[in-house]
Design a binder for these strands. Structure first.
Length: 517
RNA sequence: GGGCUCGUAGCUCAGUCUGGUUAGAGCACCGGCCUUUUAAGCCGGGAGUCGGGGGUUCGAAUCCCCUCGAGCCCGCCA
């Protein structure tokens, strides 16, 4: 059974029958939202999808904690941003001045990527919720049970304990906007007194003050309680014993008196070759849009669909990248053909959960591998499609959806070659014949190939075989003939499979080039 | 110190939750493909005491206990 369905069943048995199951993900947009955050979203989304798959209603809510405080100045942001430390991030200006706030600057591109990958969760902002008083009851409960919270958290804390003047809330000063406030007393009813470093102080009525925020460890379970959340995944840094998920489970039960949610710890996502956490300071962040610039969204989904959350996911942008594409195409083919396959049900789910286009029959599958060659020959999409047809990679009559997919892959292959392809697969077709000293045998070989091309239309395999025959007839070592072919075309000793490569090029061009020696 | 994940063919892994015919795949390797394969050609093949030990069971890669090894997490952080 697919892992998302296993979670779905666990949710139903642990949380009981419900009209609608609520799956939550949540992120603090205090920096780039990278492919790790993407895992949080897609894990949630897939479990919500799995619930629907077995006949239940589900929703996916996505909480942006843009009410969190601006803690530190990221490395690529002006120094004077230290002035904003203590403000909620939705109030900090966008350093690049293209969005309404620091938080929005990171939220907007991420929401766009999620949408491209077929996810449309309900986005909610903590800043708006707090200011609308959504958590007012939970703030009251937390303050009433302050001592119990202190005891509970202290029982899990290894190092320094919370002291008895700890409060489960922080106050954003209504005068200076920052949370540089110190709570001095709570009367047990509704009066909360505090003073701010800026000099302001007051006794606030927690029924009216809309600038009080629950602290993270309490905020999270408060959210679960308020939205009646059934499921939420979290990174392994939260999932550790004594971590915020662990204390959250205790708090939701003992403080908010609601049953615990079903949680899931997911492993980190990393780039092949890199290890450890992604961090903007190390400079190894990979954003969803980076991957989506070279990979179709359904293929990206496939990677997450097939990898259980608890397993580390290593993304590869080098040659392995091409294998992922091949694998996806195979899974897709299997899905659409009817032959008996071992574990059919499981593989079908992999495709169903990945496919966001709703294809009813197998779409064209232009091989990404070959496209990475073709895009280096021409930027003319129509010509590439013609070559794909001629070489039998796609059918002669294409639907609009097919053409769209091919054109998409062409674009992505262009990006991949430009951004990530290893040198070995890169080449440049030479406009003019390079200066070369070829042996007379090599010249003869090239000349015989051009004679052949002029007379006949050969398939890749035929041409390939004929090249060997020619080399035998001269005789010339095949290796040397191939080298000559690549040298006159791209100035390298090796290159894409010669026959398919020659067939993809314009015949007259090749003939002229081969005869110019 | 606490916790998580992993250990299955030379390599990368699936299978472990729901125990059950001779443990699978890809790559690598070997052989064949009118003695030709250069961007992973086609067909076929060999290959693993499932990290180790113990237990439960008619039956264990799978469940339980112990143990060894690797990686990772534990103020904030996916």
């Amino acid at each position: 059974m697919h892992w998302a369905l296993t979670f779905a069943e666990r949710i139903i048995s642990q949380r009981g029958e419900k009209k609608e199951y609520v799956c939550e993900s949540g992120v603090t947009p205090s920096g780039h939202c990278h492919i790790g955050h993407f895992r949080e979203a897609i894990t949630t989304s897939l479990v919500a999808l799995a619930l629907k798959d077995i006949g239940y209603n589900s929703s996916h809510i996505y909480i942006w904690d843009d009410y969190d405080r601006f803690r530190k100045v990221p490395s690529n942001v002006p120094e004077n941003y230290s002035d904003y430390i203590g403000l909620p991030i939705y109030k900090v200006p966008d350093p690049e001045d293209c969005h309404d706030s620091f938080a929005d600057h990171f939220m907007e591109p991420f929401e766009k990527s999620l949408s491209e990958a077929g996810m449309e969760p309900d986005f909610l902002r903590a800043s708006e919720q707090y200011r609308a008083g959504v958590y007012r009851d939970n703030i009251k409960i937390s303050l009433d049970k302050r001592q119990k919270l202190i005891d509970l958290l202290n029982s899990q804390r290894g190092g320094e304990k919370l002291s008895s003047d700890w409060y489960p809330v922080s106050v954003y000063c209504p005068k200076c906007g920052k949370d540089t406030t110190k709570i001095t007393s709570f009367d047990g009813d509704y009066a909360l007194s505090y003073s701010c470093k800026c000099g302001f102080s007051e006794t606030a009525d927690i029924r009216k003050a809309n600038y009080i925020k629950l602290k993270w460890r309490v905020d999270w379970p408060s959210r679960w309680a308020h939205f009646d959340v059934d499921f939420e995944p979290y990174g392994k840094d939260h999932g550790t014993t004594g971590g915020s998920a662990d204390t959250g489970f205790k708090i939701i039960q003992e403080i908010f008196e609601k049953p615990p949610i079903v949680g899931a710890t997911y492993e980190f996502v990393s780039l092949k070759g890199a290890s450890g956490k992604m961090s903007s300071s190390i400079g190894n962040v990979v954003l969803p849009r980076d991957i989506l610039s070279v990979m179709e969204p359904d293929v990206l989904r496939y990677l997450f669909v097939k990898t259980k959350p608890a397993k580390e996911l290593k993304l590869s942008l080098d040659l392995d990248f091409l294998n992922v594409y091949d694998e996806f195409d195979r899974v897709e083919s299997t899905y659409f053909n009817n032959e008996e396959v071992n574990k059919r049900e499981k593989y079908d789910k992999l495709y169903e959960f990945s496919n966001i286009w709703g294809y009813k029959s197998k779409p064209s599958q232009p091989p990404f591998r070959f496209l990475s060659v073709l895009v280096q020959i021409t930027s003319d999409a129509q010509r590439i499609i013609d070559i794909l047809k001629k070489e039998g990679h796609v059918s002669k009559d294409l639907s609009e959806a097919d053409i769209e997919r091919i054109e998409t892959r062409i674009k992505l292959a262009e990006n991949w070659v430009k951004l990530y392809a290893p040198e070995m697969v890169k080449f440049e077709l030479l406009d003019t014949p390079p200066e070369l000293e070829l042996t007379s045998d090599e010249k003869k070989g090239l000349s015989l190939i051009s004679d052949l091309l002029e007379k006949e239309d050969l398939t890749d395999v035929e041409l390939h075989n004929r090249i060997y025959e020619i080399s035998k007839s001269i005789p010339l070592e095949p290796k040397k003939l191939f080298r000559a072919i690549y040298q006159v075309l791209i100035g390298k000793d090796s290159g894409p499979k010669a026959a398919a490569f020659i067939n993809a090029l314009e015949k007259e061009f090749v003939i002229k080039r081969f005869r110019s020696y």
